[in-house]
Write a protein that binds this DNA or RNA. Structure first.
Lengths: 328, 328
DNA sequence: TTGTATGCGTTATCAA
DNA sequence: TTGATAACGCATACAA
């Protein structure tokens, strides 16, 4: 059962292969008589013809796909939602999404040269030459970076701001001595660094002590120890920023073991607003990164970039919002 | 900045384009002198040459990728882990993974004809002709289905068993009247149906009453109402199977509002063993589907299938294990 | 309105 | 050991 090609279709329909191509692609500067079109379409149906993506890509110089380059972070609810949303948005615009996670040393050039995407959405920073090469190849680049950059097509996911918002909320509630619950996972090191930096900056600006950092393993007993460290400090830590909501859940488990309640004994604020955050005990106050709107913006950018239209004005920096529940 | 082709490399290296191809692919039945190979490789380096995936795919008749076909379910921690693991396993074997989520009516044939994968891993059932067509096209098919089928290359993710295990554990603890916390999400309908069916079957076999089903929205107050319904039943429901761990968290939140504790007032068991399960209050007893071992098996199957080797003997049905913590 | 012919970048066959 | 050459399936400029 060999592959059905446009030639087979042409033969059955009694037309030339070119005509098949015209019909398939609704080529605008080729008028096709309704009768021929009809015959061709029927033949396509009958034979179950599907154009070869490879041949098309080879001919067109691009696969038409959008390549999403992700750093090697775990795919949790947030990254999942981001991919899901971006995928949906692009699909609506007739674009397919190919997702690739890359390791640190990996050669990005090789990657996009292979995939031949029409556009690249990257969450890892690309070097100067890399960007030039992409431009030269006619591939539109949209970046979604943790550290902001002043480019038209770059929007930043402001991790620094995330940290600041956490502290501001706690300071507003009168806390002066805060702790930081860091994730002991090398994969998220970059995120952690920036969020913690944001926390530090904010502490300095607001005249608070620097955060008291504890590394949290996925273990309630260890978390309990960390919590007790905070409580034993002089002066005592009264509020904690968690790296994310998962860590916050672990901290809550530690507090429970220590017989402590949030926010009375120790206030707690997370990041991500995962679906389970409202169901923590107590419901988790957290920072929402609104990745769905980022995805929407990215999709708009990509769409315009591919079509060569002027880029829509999209916020340089995505909005990050505080979600107040009960834990802080 | 036009694309760097094998011809450019050949020119720089002072050899023919065919030679470049030989060197690149380590063609076994072509001896290349070390000197030539060296020159070619240097030229490749200098020009930053990367072979065109499209051209290669066109020529070879396959893109070499593995196509993962997923139903349109939300990408939570479990599906995320599955993808992640499968991706890693395949990468280890030099295979790339292309993930596609398909809607219900979507034409799968079109999909694989376009991607030209070397193998397809499908979580949606394929029709008889579809499978024949794939075979004809020389594409290896491995299925990971919810409903088992007796094929060599099909392994089932036994959702029925998941439900049974939940009930068996509860029955063992002496519960006779159990409730079922169903997810009110149309996307997971298929999973829900099967898990619930497993619960029903097990109830019948063990001589328990049929489960008392409550639909749980993502809302603690609503969950509280559901919990109180169970408690008001005559005879009273003493244990609940949740559709998954997320629903279990919601039920726990509802119980908390109702002033009830697990397992004393109401035992609770989830499914999935998500990372947060140990940190619920109380820590969640649950069923682990071990998707990582499924992924491993699938990767083995795919590898053998592509290489035309005899398929490794792999369990027809994946193992599902009970993880006992404190909630039941 | 339709058909003919060409090239996209590879790999692989065969002759040198 | 190497090089010329022919597909692979498609889109399009150009001829009819």
């Amino acid at each position: 059962m060999a592959r059905v090609t446009a030639r087979d279709v042409a033969e059955v329909a009694g037309v030339s292969q070119a005509t098949v191509s015209y019909v398939i692609n609704d080529n605008p500067n080729q008028k096709i008589s309704p009768a021929t079109r009809e015959r061709v379409l029927r033949a396509v149906q009958d034979l179950g013809y599907a154009p070869s993506a490879a041949a098309r890509a080879l001919r067109m110089g691009t696969s038409g796909a959008v390549l999403l380059i992700l750093p090697h972070v775990p795919i949790g609810p947030v990254v999942g939602a981001f991919i899901e949303c971006l995928e949906a948005e692009l699909k609506e615009r007739g674009l397919g999404l190919v997702t690739r996670r890359v390791d640190d040393g990996e050669d990005l050039t090789l990657l996009w040269r292979q995939v031949m995407p029409a556009a690249v959405v990257s969450m890892v920073a690309m070097g100067r030459e890399e960007r030039a090469a992409l431009e030269g190849a006619g591939i539109f680049l949209a970046e979604a970076l943790l550290s902001p950059r002043r480019e038209e097509s770059t929007l930043s996911l402001p991790q620094l701001l995330v940290g600041r918002l956490q502290v501001e909320h706690l300071a507003m509630a009168g806390h002066r001595h805060i702790g930081y619950a860091a994730a002991a996972d090398a994969q998220v090191e970059e995120f952690l660094r920036l969020r913690l930096e944001g926390v530090r900056m904010s502490c300095v600006e607001l005249g608070l002590d620097l955060p008291d950092v504890q590394w949290i393993e996925a273990d309630a007993a260890a978390a309990q120890a960390a919590v007790e460290e905070w409580r034993a400090r002089e002066p005592r830590v009264t509020a904690v920023c968690a790296y994310n909501d998962e860590i916050a859940f672990v901290v809550l488990a530690g507090m429970r073991r220590a017989g402590l309640r949030a926010p009375e004994d120790l206030a707690l604020i997370g990041v991500d607003n995962i679906p389970l955050a409202p169901f923590a005990d107590p419901p988790l106050t957290t920072i929402d990164q609104n990745v769905d709107v980022s995805a929407k913006h990215l999709a708009q950018l990509v769409r315009a970039g591919i079509d060569g239209e002027p880029l829509p004005r999209v916020p340089r920096s995505e909005s990050v919002t505080l979600v107040v529940r009960e834990s802080a």
